[in-house]
Amino acid sequence: MKAGSNLEKILRAGHFAFTGELGPPRGCNVEHVREKAVPLKGMVDMVNITDNQTAMVRMSSWAAAIIALEEGLEPNYQMVCRDRNRLAMQADILGAYCHGLRNILCLSGDHQQFGDHPNAKGVYDIDSIQLINMVKNMRDEGKFAGGAEIDVPPKFFIGAAANPFGEPYEWRVHRLAKKVAAGADFIQTQCIYNMDLMREWIKQANDMGLTEKTYILAGVTPMKSLGMAKYMKNRVPGIDVPDEVINRLAGVDKKKQADEGIKIACEQIEEFKETKGIAGVHLMAIEWEHKVPEIAERAKVLPRPVMD
């Protein structure tokens, strides 16, 4: 065990992991965090706590993660490179560990121009791959990035993101390989809609032996509506929504679109369960936390294994 988190135990025991997501509020509304946490409890193995996602200021991810922990969830503490330099990152990593966080997801972060502070200075002191490596060295070597020894090192289960749908496609698996080499214990992918590209990417990862070195969790976001699908297709960088998904949603009554979206997601999850090299699913039910129990039920991933 590298960190002994619930996710690590589940993956090492060979269970198919099922993880979720919780976005912190834009303010100090603690009750809102607690409310969002309730439907996730017992439904997922770990919950990603996003870090100023879409470059909008929110309650800091470590703080919201501690609240989630108090609510009985296992957080995945997300950290982006956009907002802090290596000193701040390492300080937050130490603090987060001391408060019981055991998983971390290392990300570049959306560019600040997408958010509501478009002319903020982007920090990007180090990039996501360098961050992965820094957290690994803190854990395994007990050293800060500057080389000094850490008095009681933080032991995180280290996660990274991967997007099989960005160009150049053939290079994507090599970027994954770099993340694995840097120290990524697990990977959560971008939301998957293009299953053909996903199959090709996971095959490449299998062929390169990467799936033996890291656990890949396939990213699934159920479409709530046709409008959402069109928005994701046309407006969200790095997301590939094939026409067949659009057509399926367009083919049902407006009131049935959410149900159809969940149905598509469940079909994907069924396939991922059978796919060599995929160790679990990361469900990003964006502002749809209350639907997670239903989705988990319909995806037949319940009950979640309970580890010691």
């Binding site: 560019h111 121009q113 002319n119 903020a120």
Partner: peptide, 8 residues
């Protein structure tokens, strides 16, 4: 605060 123009 500066409205940074040199981030892209």
């Amino acid at each position: 605060p500066m409205q940074w123009q040199n981030q892209v």
